[in-house]
Simulated scan of single mutants.
Amino acid sequence: MRLYKMELFKLFQNKIFKIGMLAATGLLFLYFWFAEVGGEIATVDGKFYSGYEAVQMNRKITEEFEGDLTDEKVNQIIEKYGLPTKLEENMPGWRDGNFLNDFGTRYFTNGAWENGVLPTERYSLGETELGKAYDEIGKTPYLAYTTGWKVFVEML
């Protein structure tokens, strides 16, 4: 074990190793920024946002609904933001969606932008895979917009 620690110490003393680690971290950050943040979109009250602006807007609109997820909360989200319906060929995601109505469409309707299926049916929380999974573990799903890029439904 001592030999292992000594070898790690020698490695971390090497300038090239430090520069390489810094460069690799920088490249990962750039990839994350352009791949995740750059592709983020949101349409709120008829105004279109993209990139970091969309992240900020999605965070803002989600604050109102953050917390335990219920059928009433899902209905409020859909009533306020509607269900997205605009798809463009070779473009990922709903063109008229935001974090909340995309979440509602993805988990509580039969719509799926990946397959080009517009939402026509709505389901209650208990009828969805999400609701069934949480019933099995005896917990309530929690809705939050975390880290600014992905939906995260966590167990509390």
Rank of each mutant, 00 (worst) to 15 (best):
R106H: 13
Y123G: 09
K73N: 08
I16P: 05
A24K: 04
L83K: 04
K18W: 09
L69A: 03
I41M: 08
D135V: 06
E40P: 01
L87I: 04
Y81Q: 08
D135A: 12
Q76I: 06
F9E: 15
A112W: 07
K60A: 06
I137K: 12
W33E: 05
A35F: 05
F32D: 06
D102G: 05
E88I: 03
P119T: 07
Y81E: 09
T146E: 15
N14F: 11
W94P: 03
M91S: 09
P84E: 04
V153C: 14
T147M: 15
G111T: 10
E64N: 07
Q13I: 11
Y107W: 11
V117R: 07
L27N: 06
E63A: 15
I16W: 09
K15G: 11
T128S: 12
Y81L: 01
G116T: 04
G39K: 02
W113F: 15
K86S: 14
D102A: 01
K80D: 02
L3V: 14
T105F: 07
K132R: 14
L118M: 09
I41T: 12
Q13W: 10
A24G: 11
K139A: 02
G131D: 07
L11K: 13
M21E: 00
G138K: 10
K80Y: 05
F65L: 10
G46W: 08
L83W: 11
G131S: 05
F103E: 07
Y31M: 06
D71I: 07
G116M: 12
G67D: 12
F108G: 02
K80R: 13
G67F: 08
A133P: 05
T128Y: 07
N115H: 12
L125Q: 10
T43R: 13
A112V: 01
M21R: 06
G26E: 08
D71F: 03
E72T: 04
D71S: 05
D135Q: 15
D68G: 14
E89F: 10
L22H: 09
E79W: 00
K150P: 00
K60V: 04
E79F: 03
G93Q: 03
L87Y: 07
E63H: 10
E72P: 10
F48P: 00
N98F: 02
E63F: 08
T140Y: 02
K73T: 12
V151I: 14
I41G: 04
L27M: 14
L130N: 06
E53I: 02
G20M: 15
S124Q: 15
T120K: 15
N110Q: 13
M155H: 14
D45P: 02
K47A: 07
R59I: 01
L11H: 09
Q13D: 09
D45C: 09
M6V: 12
F152L: 12
E79M: 03
M155S: 14
G111L: 08
Y81F: 11
G38E: 02
Y134D: 11
I16E: 15
T105H: 06
M6C: 00
G131H: 03
D96F: 06
G67W: 08
A23S: 11
E79C: 04
W113M: 05
E66I: 12
E89K: 14
L27E: 00
D96A: 09
F34V: 05
M57T: 11
L87N: 01
Y49P: 05
K60E: 10
L143A: 10
